[in-house]
């Protein structure tokens, strides 16, 4: 396995979540589910109201969880965002060890 510090660098040592508008968007989405629909139907809402860069918007619209982690979406909010997008086992998309050989729930 790669060094955990290297894997976690965007989150731990670089703390990219501090400057990323992705976290306010995800926080607002939890409270206002209409934003989930706006992501697909009115993406300009996010560039206009949150100062989102094009690669950030693209990652949200593509539900690109590895890229969102790299861009600074906080892990707690990444899990919530994934859930709102219907992605229940988010760790698979992140390439995480996940459940490994542990028994699965149905």
């Amino acid at each position: 396995m790669k060094d955990p510090a290297e894997i976690l660098r965007p989150f731990v040592s670089e703390a990219r979540h501090l400057a990323s508008p992705l976290n306010m968007i995800a926080s607002d989405m939890i409270r206002d589910r209409s934003l989930v629909q706006k992501l697909d139907e009115h993406p300009d809402h996010f560039t206009q109201n949150y100062g989102l860069k094009s690669e950030e918007l693209a990652a949200l619209r593509a539900r690109d969880l590895p890229q969102l982690f790299q861009l600074g979406l906080h892990p707690f909010l990444l899990v919530r965002f994934a859930g709102m997008m219907g992605i229940l086992e988010y760790w698979q998309a992140l390439g995480a060890p996940g459940r490994g050989g542990w028994p699965r729930n149905s």
Partner: peptide, 8 residues
């Protein structure tokens, strides 16, 4: 390590 590529 919830929410990260090390979950699990």
């Amino acid at each position: 390590y919830p929410g990260t590529p090390l979950y699990g």
